[in-house]
Amino acid sequence: MDIALIGRIIPVFVQAAWTTVQISLLSLVLGLAVAALIASLRLSHLAVLRFFGAAYVSVFRGTPALLQIFLLYFGGPQLGIQLEPFAAGAIALGLNIAAYMAESIRGGVLSVDRGQMEAARSLGFGEGQSMRWIVLPQAAKLMIRPLGVNAVALVKGTALVATISVVELTYTAQRFIGSTYKPFEIFAVTAVLYMIMVYGLTLVIDWLDRAYAEEA
């Protein structure tokens, strides 16, 4: 065990972990926005919109995330989409996690008792108003946990963008192993940093869950 090596690499790895945090946050924001759209398609009255929503989920959940990253980064230029590795990684991961998050959102909305929508409609609220004032506030609470699970998967999934040479945590680890031949120390430090990030995220999720639970 090379303790001195660990001490030396930590500043660089913390820097790399920061890149992982940034790419996670960007894909999380993109993922949530796309997921909200896809979920609303899946819950639409119009069969054609439901079809597009379902197709999106099938495609992005039904193929490897790694392949989606490759498709965008390596295949993109053929279609005139030229992206930096960081941008390609964040977008591909965001589009991928959106498929899972859309299902979490939809699940939350469908878990709200049907009587809630009926009671709102019977008072004279329109469909959108009922959704906004009555169903979504209750669904939000039910979505926090499943979306949290998606977010944790996303943070760990960012390791995939190492393959398109985004200088994040896993990529940095591989590079240092190449020059030091100490894979145990380096992967151990890397694993600890991932755990710290995931732990921080679960604290945020727990806090959100509690904040919402207290409201009612």
Partner: peptide, 24 residues
């Protein structure tokens, strides 16, 4: 029709077997 039915429903009170109060 949405507009029509919303205004009609405002004139009818409905009470359900399972209350359907808004828990939040």
């Amino acid at each position: 029709f949405e507009k029509h039915i919303n205004s009609v429903r405002q004139q009818m009170g409905m009470v359900f077997q399972h209350f359907n109060l808004f828990p939040h």
